[in-house]
Simulated scan of single mutants.
Amino acid sequence: MSKVLVTGADGFIGSHLTEELVRQGYNVRAFVYYNSFNSWGWLDQSPQEIKAQLDVFSGDLRDPYGVKEAMKGCTHVLNLAALIAIPYSYHSPATYVDTNITGTLNIVQAAKELGVEKIVHTSTSEVYGTALYVPIDEEHPLQGQSPYSASKIGADQMALSFYRSFDTPVSIIRPFNTYGPRQSARAVIPTIISQLASGQTTIKLGAISPTRDFNYVKDTVQGFISVMNAEKSIGEVINIGSNYEVSIGETAEMIADIMGVNLTIETDEQRLRPEKSEVERLWAENKKAKELLGWQPQYGGKEGLRKGLEETIEWFTNPKNLAQYKADVYNI
């Protein structure tokens, strides 16, 4: 019987994915970041019936011995563990190399030695940089416009090199901007919602002209499961996106409309990326995912975005959930 290891299971997307895998009947080992609080991150808030079925492994992706130990007995590995905050990558770029590139090497090296059936490695739309053409397909050039995106380009290439060198069964999933319940407030949609939900009508943002292809977390989760199960995905890079482009400013207005707030946006200088580092435009071509996986977004287009935002707002405006965010503090 297959056993699935999810690294980064304690995080935003990882916790949603872990829960869905359990619901679908998979045997799941959840790799969480070791800490002295014995915290499982967002999995601490999972339903008890989900937690009771989890095999939790606490470790660090940077430790090759621990990674290999976690992977023993697992047939599939979904590698989501990574450092992802772009502003923090300006501050501490070496940690991104250690976690994202070396951590990925530890995964694929152990997979090669253990004979794992499938590795799904998580990429990001940030590796494309500002779109040179739209919609962005998987053949679009890669542009490292931040230390974070450079580290993810390196991680992707490390994973693919093991497929090409050793036939390690690697697939690369490349989600565009995922949003939803539990997302860190350093991301733009939770930043907007948490500020409005805390009673502010004048909110602080960085640049609002860049466009993004927002992908609701339920769609991203189904993308992971589809890539994991598709034989045709081995050796492939596959975009998971909604194929709908919207600006940050328009997104903020839509959120304000749903929440019934008259919104004023104030530019906060510390939230602005350096000019050549800002990714001005992202818009996913998702044709390959549809053809290879039979996957398509359930929250696509303007209507889908609004539906996903409504579900996200409902979660964030629950006082219990909102209390976990510091809406008045900018977190890099």
Results as ranks from 00 to 15, higher is better:
residue 125 S to Y: 06
residue 4 V to L: 03
residue 257 D to R: 10
residue 222 Q to I: 06
residue 71 M to A: 04
residue 48 Q to T: 14
residue 62 R to G: 04
residue 122 T to S: 14
residue 139 E to V: 06
residue 231 E to V: 15
residue 243 N to L: 15
residue 193 I to S: 03
residue 161 S to A: 15
residue 266 E to S: 14
residue 123 S to Y: 03
residue 231 E to G: 08
residue 118 K to E: 04
residue 28 V to Y: 04
residue 115 G to K: 05
residue 39 S to M: 12
residue 276 K to C: 04
residue 244 Y to P: 03
residue 37 F to W: 05
residue 32 V to Q: 01
residue 113 E to W: 10
residue 285 E to W: 06
residue 149 S to P: 08
residue 71 M to T: 07
residue 242 S to F: 11
residue 161 S to N: 13
residue 53 Q to K: 14
residue 89 S to G: 11
residue 178 T to G: 13
residue 158 M to Q: 03
residue 36 S to H: 11
residue 169 P to R: 05
residue 62 R to T: 15
residue 177 N to H: 12
residue 264 T to R: 13
residue 226 S to E: 05
residue 156 D to T: 11
residue 75 T to S: 14
residue 75 T to I: 02
residue 229 N to R: 14
residue 150 A to G: 07
residue 175 P to I: 15
residue 163 Y to R: 07
residue 179 Y to G: 00
residue 148 Y to T: 06
residue 92 S to Y: 07
residue 312 T to F: 04
residue 247 S to H: 09
residue 143 Q to L: 13
residue 35 N to L: 05
residue 6 V to G: 01
residue 52 A to R: 13
residue 159 A to D: 02
residue 326 K to Q: 09
residue 52 A to H: 10
residue 205 L to H: 03
residue 182 R to Y: 11
residue 39 S to K: 09
residue 113 E to Y: 12
residue 18 T to C: 04
